[in-house]
Design a binder for these strands. Structure first.
Lengths: 118, 118
DNA sequence: ATAGTTTGTACTCGATACGCGTACTTTTTT
DNA sequence: AAAAAAGTACGCGTATCGAGTACAAACTAT
């Protein structure tokens, strides 16, 4: 039911202990969630989604959308999503294109600063 | 925790019994969820979201978005969202910047096409 | 190499609370 | 007014949650 937990944790290079500590629960408890041996309470589940900055629906495998687009999201976190979430003319924006974009925006913003605000 | 259940059910003019029947659980069980007396299992929770055609995150009050978010979103739809959803270096990406970005990517893609694939 | 630490896995145990049936009150229908 | 349905409340058996502990495997460091 929560098969994606392990993947999310490993992406962040966290140990079971570290993760459990951040959630304020016992290591064995969190390990139980990852292994499918136990299910968290709805409160815990919510906190887990919070910790991994994703949705409960993603944790439950109900969507492939990693991020909540309603929330503000730093663009770098979108770069390596498994399923591309941004399209231009129907074509997914690639990681490289996003990186280019960031550089592009940064240089533009720098120019603005040089000219001085207002 | 599941305060929206009652509202969703009443919108549909379903009784507790009808709803429970559709979920294959006892009336008292489902009533327990609505009153906050009990929490459903993750499986039940998923089935409830399914029944009401919404997301688990909505049921949990984690989002105000009633419907499932689209898997992929055309970037133009992000331009004029009331709350800017993309950040670079913590600063919201403005509509103008996104427009620039689209032009930027289009020209890059055109170049690639001219050179021909492979 | 080996002792010490950390990580992941497996198990027990007490306490929580899940899910059902049922009984009761309130509301609606005939 | 009687009957049916809807909503609410409670007791009970049992599943399972969560912590604690124990142990093997992997990693660090002396």
């Amino acid at each position: 039911m929560l098969d994606r937990l392990s993947e999310l944790r490993k992406e962040r290079k966290w140990s079971l202990q570290e993760t459990a500590d951040q959630l304020g629960i016992a290591k064995s408890t969190y390990a139980g969630y990852e292994s499918g041996y136990r299910e968290p309470s709805l409160l815990s589940l919510t906190q887990i989604a919070e910790l991994f900055e994703t949705t409960v629906d993603y944790l439950l495998g109900r969507t492939d959308e990693l991020h909540r687009m309603q929330k503000r999201v730093e663009i770098t976190t979108v770069i390596h999503t498994p399923t591309p979430s941004l399209l231009i003319d129907g074509e997914p924006v690639t990681a490289d294109e996003i990186i280019d974009f960031i550089a592009f925006i940064r240089s533009k913003r720098d120019l603005k600063l040089e000219k001085g605000p207002a």
